[in-house]
Design a binder for these strands. Structure first.
Lengths: 137, 137
DNA sequence: TATGAAAGACTAACTAA
DNA sequence: TTAGTTAGTCTTTCATA
């Protein structure tokens, strides 16, 4: 991870489909170097994945789950990650143990997801926050 | 947003650099159709951006900021989004108003970010959680 | 939807540090 | 030995019909 790696990542973060030739030109190196760097960072898990940030619905929200002490949090996380409208799931430290980030059609859909979570016997409590705005770093 | 759009997005979410020709083959349509669909979804802001998920440091965390009532939350969000090691910033509803998602070198770096946040006069309180694991939906 | 020109990516051989 | 470059070739993209 040197300055060149950081520059490449910074460009890819804003447009992951940008051709390597263009990236090379803006950072002042050759296409091959950019490609090699990206390959290496992918192998080293510095790059986790090339992905697409979407808003397919109208409401984004965080649904935090407070989970019973005797529950395997990772398994539960895997389960809820499969639910429709769930973008990703974090296991976190703190009072709540799991955070679902959802991209739902409307508030009613969010409500259905909350209900579904509360119906799980592993889930003790939930707390939901709407995501009103997102800014890239 | 029909089934084909959803299939295309689902593939791009796992590999945003996958060639349209390959995507076309796996969803059973032509390259031009995939490209047109992606273009349309980008125009419609269903696709917000093509990006890269990284782990450049060793510790990911959420730093939640409780902000004074008279503060312009959006401006503050823009400020902290510019900080080094901050991946993105959410404005949220609920007790805390801003959530920073950070990818820091180590716990000490996280601590420095928390300190920096607490030094802002707009910030009344902070709450931090480590992100222990992430699962894709 | 089909097609061909232009652009991009990949391989492999070479160079430099 | 490792990273960077380059030329040649193959693949993908894009505009037009």
């Amino acid at each position: 991870m040197d300055e060149l790696d950081r520059q490449i990542l910074s460009i890819l973060r804003r447009d992951a489909r940008k051709p390597y030739t263009e990236i090379a030109e803006s950072v002042g190196t050759s296409e091959g170097t950019v490609r090699n760097r990206v390959e290496r960072m992918t192998e080293d898990d510095i790059i986790e994945r090339f992905t697409v940030a979407t808003q397919t619905g109208n409401v984004k929200a965080m649904i935090e789950l407070d989970v019973a002490v005797d529950v395997n949090t990772s398994n539960l996380g895997g389960t809820v990650a499969e639910w429709d409208e769930v973008d990703f799931v974090w296991q976190v430290s703190g009072e709540e143990d799991i955070v679902l980030v959802v991209d739902a059609a409307d508030t009613q859909s969010v409500n259905q997801l909350i209900t579904r979570a509360r119906e799980l016997e592993e889930v003790v409590n939930t707390k939901t926050r709407l995501i009103l705005d997102e800014k890239l770093g």
